[in-house]
Design a protein around this nucleic acid. Structure first.
Length: 805
RNA sequence: GCCCGGGUGGCGGAAUUGGUAGACGCAAGGGACUUAAAAUCCCUCGAGAGCAAUCUCGUGCCGGUUCGACUCCGGCCCUGGGCACCA
């Protein structure tokens, strides 16, 4: 051990030892005490960013602390290597996506190794590897056979200049990012997975996810959005046409003053054939994207169809409009307009001067409309005076009994569109005959690989333009055929990667059943931005795998830690803002332990983290002090006798505290604070020479063990110096016995809830005795002098509150 | 707009089940060491009043519940994430 802390040397030594001792294959043969730690694998964008460092440091703390507790921990790492940035780089720098991706991976792998994370590198995977994506093609064909996959027309962002489909992020203010052309909506046939068949399964199983944050579970529940409502039939005046509107608020039925239908509704397109005005309206808004967000925010617009229908109860005539804010992928694409009780309908009615009838009364509604709250019905004939919930039920029954409508259950969740018109993705393994018939690629021809020789210039879809790849002869019929040129959504790859990690080199199957016992993943760690889509798709995929008998359980991730983002100057780090931090710079300057320490100390894991250059310096200083003190204790501290055991009590308290923080609370910042506190006390005891050499060593060793999961390199070096200890993955420290009996505790004394005094008492005293001591306390006496005690509240070992007059 | 988080000193944060607000750290100020600087070490550090003991106020804003509220309830403001083709 050198006198001075040299992170570069310390880290190199430790990493060499860990590298040599890795034996993943042997580990995976045993499932006793198995613990599968998974951090969300990165997209290989080129450089690790601080968010990755945070994610992977948390994963490593969980991994190392569990190894120390004797668990058999598997922690893999790989690459989510298909995706848009590779194509963008190809267009910009004329480099092949594969080449670009591979060199990024090579660089980022080194970066990860430099942080000292204990990965099972033998099991590394890359999703762009045909050995990986072969199995998702194989699985897709299973689903196709089962009828869980279908094709339908669906809208995309179409850049009319580049003749290409754009991702949402490539559309800026409605214009294409490269061409600047006004982006249009275009309907093309695309593949879908029937996730809606599993809506109830996905919803109900959320209750099994005890180890997930409530917020994430709630977000998923709301996303699935199961709701009971009523499909109401409105009969048209002029013909026998029926408009079925879905509503979750039958209680507002008497407030309906118009009917609004979506521009994509069949009736709308029929009318547009005859009416120029309607045609223009539809053409205009068909070019614009309509999401829930735009539906809420868009300037409401509409066109009157000239038609009316009858209110199903009052028989009043109601105008039918085509409106730009009606979603056609939720409900029926027809909405009953209730301006008084829906903000969007309100805006619409105001603009077109439609009638507004208030039918719900509550405290809030006295003078402000629209009012979405429940309340008591008014202006609703025989339903007047009923509360919303009862009215909903009665009105629903009325409709069912009179065949005017039907109670239905709807979901917000939509089927998962998995087609992407991109080159850098996994080819969808089907082909088409000239008549359009779909054929699955025979299993023995899998994987369908990507052609290497392609032209990527931002125009069109390269696969569509590569006829050597696209045009084939049908292996079954010998007829001319063309391959599917769409590739999978990259969420497809990340929905099952945690299986493949266990058996990455298997050429015969997706995943061998002997690894089943390693599932589900015990601890999953990743960014909160994935709370819905990725996690929902992975849960869905797991159920599909279960139904195929590939896995045995219902849910893939037992416990989930959703980490917050890393901010600089209050904003998300991004290249455009120029506020990025390169982890390499920090590691070069201070070492990996410092960045690990800082990133865990600066904020609790699930919260956003504000980056600070000066605070990182503080972490470095602490490690230097820790090194210096350890050196002193190991080399030149020689005090034979222990003078008091306060510091030993602190030793024990710190072990308790850090154990709870690491294993139960996942509160790494407070665990570090506790160790720092202990360090300060120990430092003082050593200065005062009140602790013996033997106990000082014991304290240093415990501290190195407590910090081992967080700053493993320096702790490895210090434990090596103490010699008696196992330096690599040591055991979790134990308390010193017999030092903390008969402790004193501080009890605070409050008068009317205000802190007035503090008393020290033995922790095993009874309530009466403690109250007696408190009443004798000088300060308390002063406050109680002229008062009478109305009530005494005692919280054991914490406080006494005298309520006085 | 909707769904889910967050708001506490100059800054990052702590307070685990409603019970001492500000642990731990950063920055700042003062001091020691040094020819000097760096490094290191020591002291002070929410606001106001007071010579002091000490007192009053204080956890985004307004109100409520409670002996007691950063914590629970109602309303509002600001801010981060998600809204289905970024991953």
């Amino acid at each position: 051990m050198n006198k001075d802390y040299n992170p570069r040397e310390v880290e190199k030594n430790a990493q060499e030892v860990w590298d040599e001792n890795s034996c993943t294959r042997e580990k995976l043969t045993r499932s006793k005490d198995k613990y599968y730690v998974l951090s969300m694998f990165p997209y290989p964008s080129g450089k690790l960013h601080i968010g990755h460092v945070r994610n992977y440091t948390i994963g490593d703390v969980i991994t190392r602390s569990n190894i120390m507790k004797g668990r058999n921990v598997f922690q893999p790492m790989g690459w989510d290597s298909f995706g848009l940035p590779a194509e963008n780089a190809a267009i910009k720098n004329n480099v092949h996506p594969e080449e670009w991706t591979k060199s990024n991976i090579a660089h980022m792998r080194i970066q990860l190794k430099n942080i000292g994370i204990l990965y099972d590198w033998d099991n590394e995977i890359s999703t762009a590897d045909p050995g990986y994506f072969k199995w998702e093609q194989w699985f897709f064909l299973k689903l196709l056979k089962k009828g869980l996959v279908y094709r339908k027309l669906s809208e995309v962002n179409w850049d009319p200049v580049d003749k290409t489909v754009l991702a949402n992020e490539q559309v800026i203010d409605g214009k294409g990012w490269r061409s600047g052309a006004l982006v249009e909506r275009k309907k093309i046939p695309q593949w879908f997975l029937k996730i809606t068949d599993f809506a109830d399964d996905l919803l109900n199983d959320i209750d099994k996810l005890d180890g997930w944050p409530e917020s994430v579970k709630l977000m998923q529940k709301n996303w699935i959005g199961k709701s009971k409502g009523l499909n109401i039939n409105f009969v048209s005046e002029s013909s026998s046409e029926i408009f079925t509107a879905f509503t979750t608020r039958p209680d507002t039925l008497f407030g309906v003053t118009y009917l609004a239908i979506s521009i994509n509704h069949d009736i709308a397109s029929n009318l547009s054939k005859k009416d120029e005005k309607i045609k223009n309206f539809i053409t205009k808004y068909q070019k614009q994207k309509l999401s829930e967000e735009t539906s809420a925010k868009v300037e409401k617009d509409g066109v009157f169809t000239g038609k009316y229908c009858f209110h199903p109860i009052t028989q009043k005539k109601i105008p039918i409009w085509i409106a730009n804010y009606i979603l056609d992928n939720y409900g029926t694409g027809v909405v009953m307009g209730v301006p008084a009780h829906d903000p969007r309908d309100y805006d619409f009615a105001k603009k077109f001067d439609l009638e507004i009838i208030k039918v719900i009364d509550n405290e809030k509604s006295t003078n402000s409309l629209p009012n979405v709250e429940k309340g008591t019905l008014v202006n609703s004939s025989e339903f007047n005076g009923l509360k919303s919930d009862i009215a909903k039920e009665k009105i629903t029954n009325y409709f069912q009994d009179n065949n005017l409508g039907e109670e239905v259950v709807t979901y917000r969740l939509r089927d998962w569109g998995i087609s992407r018109q991109r080159y850098w993705g996994c080819p969808i393994p089907v082909y088409y005959h000239e008549d359009g018939t779909v054929y699955p690629v025979p299993e023995e021809d899998l994987p369908v690989k990507l052609p290497k020789d392609i032209k990527l210039d931002g125009e069109g879809n390269p696969l569509d333009r590569t006829s050597e790849w696209k045009d084939i002869t049908c292996p079954v019929t010998g007829k001319k055929a063309t391959r599917e040129t769409d590739t999978f959504d990259t969420f497809f790859e990340s929905s099952w990667y945690f299986l493949r990690f266990l058996d990455p080199h298997n050429e015969k199957e997706m995943f061998n059943k002997k690894f089943k016992s390693w599932l589900p993943v015990d601890q999953y760690i990743g960014g909160i931005e994935h709370a819905i889509l990725h996690l929902l798709y992975a849960r869905f995929f797991y159920k599909l795998l279960r139904d195929e008998g590939i896995v045995d359980n219902d849910e893939p991730f037992i416990s989930l830690l959703s980490q917050g983002m890393v901010l600089k100057d209050g904003a998300k780090m991004s290249k455009s803002k120029g506020n990025t931090i390169d982890p390499d710079d920090i590691i070069n300057k201070y070492g990996a332990d410092t960045i690990r320490l800082f990133i865990l100390f600066a904020a609790p894991p699930e919260q956003n983290l504000e980056w600070s250059d000066s605070a990182i310096e503080g972490g470095y200083k602490f490690l230097k002090r820790f090194w210096k003190l350890s050196y002193l204790v190991c080399n030149s501290y020689d005090v034979p006798k222990n003078k008091n055991n306060k510091i030993l009590i602190k030793h024990n308290e710190t072990i308790d505290k850090v154990s709870t923080d690491l294993f139960k609370r996942k509160s790494y910042n407070t665990a570090i604070a506790a160790v720092m506190e202990f360090f300060n006390s120990l430092s003082k005891s050593i200065d005062e020479e009140s602790i013996s050499n033997e106990y000082a060593k014991r304290c240093i060793s415990s501290m190195a063990k407590l910090l081992y999961p967080i700053t493993p390199h320096i702790c490895f070096a210090i434990l090596s110096e103490i010699k008696a200890e196992k330096a690599s993955n040591p055991e979790w420290p134990e308390k010193i016995e017999g030092v903390d009996v008969g402790q004193e505790v501080q009890v605070i004394v409050q008068i009317n809830g205000k802190l007035r005094s503090k008393i020290n008492v033995k922790s095993d005293l009874k309530e009466e005795e403690i109250v007696k001591i408190a009443l004798e306390d000088q300060k308390t006496k002063e406050y109680l002098a002229k008062a009478s005690i109305l009530k005494t509240i005692y919280i054991p070992n914490k406080l006494i509150n005298f309520v006085i007059k």
